[in-house]
Design a protein around this nucleic acid. Structure first.
Length: 174
DNA sequence: AGCAAGATCGGT
DNA sequence: CCGATCTTGCTG
């Protein structure tokens, strides 16, 4: 009922990423609905951003990032952990937000394990899916957050300094 | 066909 | 600090 619609996702990743903080990540498993507050995200912005997988151009893996916003981009890292990303912006502009933390499960690998996210979610549409989507959170207003450089991307030369990691401030908790 | 590296995590 | 574990994209 409160699900985020297409227009929320078809904006620049630097606008969408911080706006995802405080929203609820919703997962439906066996007809049971679970909601988790999004607490930490990172922005990956286009082919020029050397930290973004799309810096290698259009490949089978990055293909989904070239689609319209609102789709899910998942990939396996270190042969063990699934990373959950939300595609943003419009057709032909590859961007995505990495969901790094939900309340109670801080860490991109931990939250996908908790939510049972795997390769089958690649390309899932958050606007239409019946097993994963994102909702507005009416309890939280006036969201406060901090920014830091992104984690684990030291290879990205000058792009590693961008303050594109967004962390929900504790102040927001009641 | 083979290889090196990786948007991580948990245990020494 | 180190190893686990396997997909991916690049090289030849």
């Amino acid at each position: 009922m409160n699900r985020l619609q297409r227009d929320f996702f078809t904006c620049d990743v630097l606008k969408v990423a911080p706006e995802l903080l405080g929203k609820n990540l919703v997962r439906k498993v066996d007809n049971q609905i679970e909601k988790y507050l999004i607490t930490e995200v990172e922005a990956y912005r286009g082919e020029k951003d050397l930290a973004c997988h799309a810096s290698k151009g259009r490949t089978p893996r990055t293909e989904i990032m070239y689609h319209n916003g609102g789709l899910v981009y998942v990939y396996l890292i270190y042969g063990m952990y699934w990373m959950l990303n939300v595609v943003t912006s419009v057709n032909e502009i590859p961007q995505a937000v990495l969901i790094r933390g939900i309340k109670g499960f801080e860490g991109p690998g931990k939250l996908t394990k908790k939510l049972n996210i795997d390769k089958s979610f690649y390309g899932e549409d958050l606007v239409n899916s019946n097993r994963i989507w994102i909702e507005n959170n009416e309890d939280l207003e006036d969201i406060k957050y901090k920014t830091t450089p992104r984690i684990g991307i030291d290879y990205a030369v000058e792009w590693k300094h961008k303050l594109w990691r967004f962390i929900l401030s504790e102040k927001n908790d009641h």
